[in-house]
Simulated assay, not measured.
Amino acid sequence: MIQLHDKHFVPFISAQDIGAALERMAKEAEADLDGEVPVFIGVLNGAFMVVSDFVKHYTKPCEISFVKLASYEGTESTGAVKQLIGLSQSLEGRTVVVIEDIVDTGHTVAELVKMFKAQKVKQLKIATLFFKPEAYTQNIALDYIGFEIPNKFIVGYGLDYDGLGRNLPEVYQLHS
C-alpha cells in the first residue's frame, strides 16, 4: 500500500502487464494503419508515459505531438474540458491517433474528436491504456484499449492524485 496526500492506494496493475498491453495496442495500430504515416497525439499530462512506451513498440514511420486538456480536480471529473495547449501543426488530410492514459466519462474524447474533425483529418482513431466502461457516457468508439477497469480512482504510470503518483511504474487503485 502507498499513501499520496491523504489517501491510500493498493497495487492494481503491474508494470509488466502495462508493457504487454502497450505492445499489443501498438501492433494492432500498426496493422490497421499500414501504408499511413500517423500522427500520434498524446494527451498531457497523464499520457506522457503511455505515448513514450507505445511508440517504442510502433516500428513504422510516425510523428508524435501533444495536446494538454484538463477535466479533473482531485479524484472527481469536473465534466468540463478546458483546452490548455493546442497543436502547432496542420493535421488536414492526416491520419491521427489520439493516445490517452485513461478514458472514463469520455468528455475529453468528445472534445478531442470535435477539435480534430475541425482540423479535417483524414482518419481519427482513439487509443487508451485504461477504459472505465461503467463511467463512459459517449457514443464514440475507442479503437485500441489496453485494459477495461472498474470505475475506481487509479494512480501511477502517468496518472496522478493532485500532482503525486505520476512517476510510479505500476498502477495503484484507491483503497476503500
Rank of each mutant, 00 (worst) to 15 (best):
K7I: 03
H8R: 14
H8T: 14
F9A: 02
I13P: 03
I13C: 03
S14R: 10
A15N: 13
A15P: 06
D17M: 09
D17T: 01
A21H: 03
R24M: 09
M25L: 09
M25W: 00
A26Q: 01
A26G: 08
A26Y: 07
K27I: 13
E28S: 14
A29Q: 12
L33T: 06
D34F: 13
V37I: 14
V37W: 01
V37E: 14
V39Y: 08
V39C: 12
V39H: 05
F40R: 00
I41K: 10
N45W: 09
N45G: 10
A47H: 05
A47F: 09
A47E: 08
V50I: 13
V55S: 07
V55D: 05
K56W: 01
H57M: 06
H57E: 02
Y58K: 00
K60P: 02
K60I: 05
I64N: 10
V67C: 13
V67N: 08
K68I: 04
L69S: 06
E76I: 04
S77M: 08
G79N: 08
G79K: 05
A80E: 12
A80H: 10
A80N: 07
V81A: 11
V81M: 12
V81Q: 07
Q83H: 05
L84Q: 14
I85R: 02
G86M: 10
G86P: 05
G86R: 02
Q89E: 13
L91T: 04
E92W: 12
E92P: 09
T95G: 00
V96S: 01
V103Y: 09
D104C: 03
G106R: 07
